[in-house]
Amino acid sequence: MSDSLFDRIGGETAVNAAVDIFYRKVLADDRISGYFDDVDMEKQVAKQKGFLTMAFGGPNNYTGTDMRKGHAHLVERGLDDSHFDAVVENLGNTLKELGVADDLVGEVAAIAETTRNDVLGK
């Protein structure tokens, strides 16, 4: 197991396979879809790819400050733990749908979890 999580999960190919499925789940999820209205879908997909790359343990340069700034307007609109949980749930279901092993799904969820406080501005 010397390979990184990103390599084991399938790298960029996995990100590209996951992005449509994940974004579709998010948009179809009434708990959170409201936060994704009025966004430019093309730009949103680029952001989702960035997020998935990070969650898959891939190279990224996201900082806690970026996360705070990027979500502050959503926190003002009431974004809370329940919404964060819903996104993580959709992420897990996306990976399961793609046949990713449970232990890897767990690792991804753990990485996503590290962003919770920054995303929610805590």
Partner: peptide, 27 residues
């Protein structure tokens, strides 16, 4: 720029002169 790993596409530019490498046009 954002991901610095050829994924997020936020650093996309146009090569007016010179050839982009094939790897820089994936996705």
């Amino acid at each position: 720029y954002s991901c610095k790993s050829g994924v997020c596409q936020s650093c996309m530019m146009v090569a007016v002169e010179g050839e982009p490498t094939p790897g820089s046009q994936l996705g």
